[in-house]
Design a protein around this nucleic acid. Structure first.
Lengths: 126, 126
DNA sequence: GGTATCGCTTTCCTAAAGTATAGCGGTATA
DNA sequence: TATACCGCTATACTTTAGGAAAGCGATACC
């Protein structure tokens, strides 16, 4: 990450096949986890405690069951959230952030920090 | 950003219209700046110094002039990059990151950090 | 029996993002 | 004169993300 400080050692004239490409991959992975219209809101919702499907949907206006279902699956696959089935009658299902999911906190914090500065800048420039 | 620590004070049962929605906006702004197929690579490329249009294109395989042009414009609009016209003959044009653009560094660093851990985790789980 | 809630899935559709290809005005180079 | 590089733009197309609507199996409630 010294790249941005003009560290010429690691990035010779073309980027492909160099260390640069390698460093891009994890950054893109992280971005993938967070991008999309609903992921962040769902993560945020779950960060306040375990929730049921409909409960999440109610909390996030505009979110369709299809999207919610899809996003929850992805969160699960990535180990960020967990689906818990309780054998009550009828079965109730709850989703919650895993402790791994909570490790996103500093990252989201950094996004928030930069985004806030950016907002101010945009508004100031108008 | 204490949300993830289960801070119930700020986020009552539904998220819309609360502090939560407000905090989402800057995060989304930041995400917007970075997401898309090419933005990151372009920023990274420019982080190694000023570059010309074709030069950037050559460094990033698959990047079409249309996309590059579009992304550079967005970077400029957002104050992250600058377009400099030099009146050599023929005119040469260079793009470079503004100092503001360089403030993305810690954010990208955080993305890289989390993404790297995530990669390891994914690989380990297979 | 009728209606409602839960946790989804399915199908179809639209809008936005991205790709492929061509071209243009300018300059230089052989 | 022909060819090539530069910095793009324009047009047309494909691919992906997301939305809208319906429905399904199970249970429960009146």
């Amino acid at each position: 990450m010294e790249a941005i400080e003009h560290d010429k050692r690691k990035c010779p004239s073309h980027l492909s096949g160099t260390e640069c490409t390698k460093m891009l991959l994890p950054v893109k992975d992280a971005l993938d986890i967070l991008s999309g219209k609903w992921k962040l809101q769902i993560i945020l919702s779950l960060s306040f405690g375990k929730k049921r499907f409909k409960q999440i949907q109610r909390e996030i206006p505009g979110l369709t069951p299809k999207m919610l279902s899809k996003e929850l699956k992805e969160l699960e696959i990535n180990g960020l959230a967990e689906r818990r089935v309780y054998d009550t009658l009828p079965v109730s299902i709850e989703y919650e952030l895993t402790s791994y999911g909570k490790t996103l906190q500093p990252l989201i914090g950094e996004l928030h920090k930069w985004g806030t500065k950016h907002r101010k800048r945009i508004i100031a420039r108008k």
